[in-house]
Amino acid sequence: MEYTHLGRTGLTVSRLCLGTMNFGPHTEEADAHRLMDTAHERGINFFDTANVYGRDPEGNLKGRTEEIIGRWFAQGGGRRERTVLATKVYGEMDGWPNGGKLSAFAIRKSVDASLKRLQTDHIDLYQMHHIDRDTPWDEIWQAMEVLVAQGKITYVGSSNFAGWHLAQAQEAARSRHFLGLVSEQSLYNLLDRTVELEVIPALQHYGLGLLPWSPLRSGLLGGILRKEREGTRVRGATAYASELLDTHRDRLQTYEDFADELGLDPADLALAWLLSRPAVTAPIVGPRTAAHLDAAVAALDIRLDHKTLDRLDEIFPGHRPAPEDYAW
């Protein structure tokens, strides 16, 4: 396993982060526990979850994923001590006023509930799942400072922030002499490269790590056309993912053909590309089996030359930093 620092911090994390969103809705608890054990065996020490994960199709059972992780920690054997634990706050949990978002009241309520479900006394990386346009930054940072002082959280991160939001957050934290954000979780993969415009330049400026979610774009970059032909495609993808497949079918076929030329699995190529990108700390992978996890780990050994990277840019055009991308 390869390791790196999370952004500008001294915290050491694996270059792959285990995503747990499937735990509960798609992965049974016993299988989830085995996956987490396997992740540790492979050297992955960085796990990501969220307070709202675990929802069923009706939107019930929020918090179930954290509970599954908590029961795994409770087995002992150094499981908690060897894990850099990241979870999130913002999502509405109980349908009652202040049951979500980022007021100081909601943050205090949410962190205590997550700690209880996770059966731990602290969260290593507490991430804001979305920007809250209704709560001033001074209120948010005051709440986070209290949690750090209480030892309930160690670092603060963000997710799904725009570049402007990152700048707002960091400048407000700086005025309070607070560390502020250390990482941002964004949608980033070969098909979705919008963050290259302003988010990645902001991350580089402020020294934040990037944790790309959906690195295979719901399986579209994992050899989906080959799996269709072989009859091994897993059904159950969202309607939106199916629409994306129809939209990008020709491009994905070109991509899969190129992966074949390189002798690489498309999923490994997609992960290797992300690992080569500036500011990326660790793509968040969501395996359902140990074999899927091992395939993700294999991508760490792939080094892509400039010719390969240029060809991928031709297939999936990216962005230059703004404003040069769209202005002289």
Score class of each variant (00 low, 15 high):
L118S: 12
I123G: 01
I107C: 02
G100P: 05
L115G: 05
G99M: 09
T135L: 08
I123P: 01
T135N: 08
Q127K: 06
Q127N: 04
Q142N: 13
H122N: 15
W137F: 05
R108I: 01
L115M: 11
W96F: 09
R133F: 12
D121R: 13
S114Y: 04
Y126L: 11
A106H: 14
G100W: 03
A106M: 11
W141A: 00
L118C: 14
H122F: 15
G100L: 06
I140T: 07
S110V: 01
L118T: 10
W96L: 15
K109C: 02
W96N: 13
D124L: 04
A106T: 13
K116I: 00
T135E: 07
L118K: 10
D112G: 10
D134T: 11
D124W: 05
D132Q: 03
I123V: 15
L102R: 07
D138H: 15
L118V: 15
T135K: 06
A106F: 13
D121N: 12
R117L: 09
A104K: 13
D134R: 12
Q119T: 08
M128C: 15
L118H: 09
M128Y: 12
P97W: 09
K116Q: 04
I107H: 02
Y126K: 12
I140V: 11
D112R: 15
T135I: 10
S103W: 05
F105E: 14
Q142F: 08
I123L: 03
D132S: 00
S110L: 02
T135A: 05
T120N: 11
W141T: 00
D134N: 12
L102E: 04
V111W: 02
I140A: 02
D134I: 08
I140F: 02
W96K: 12
T135S: 06
A104S: 10
M128R: 14
I107A: 03
K116A: 05
P97G: 07
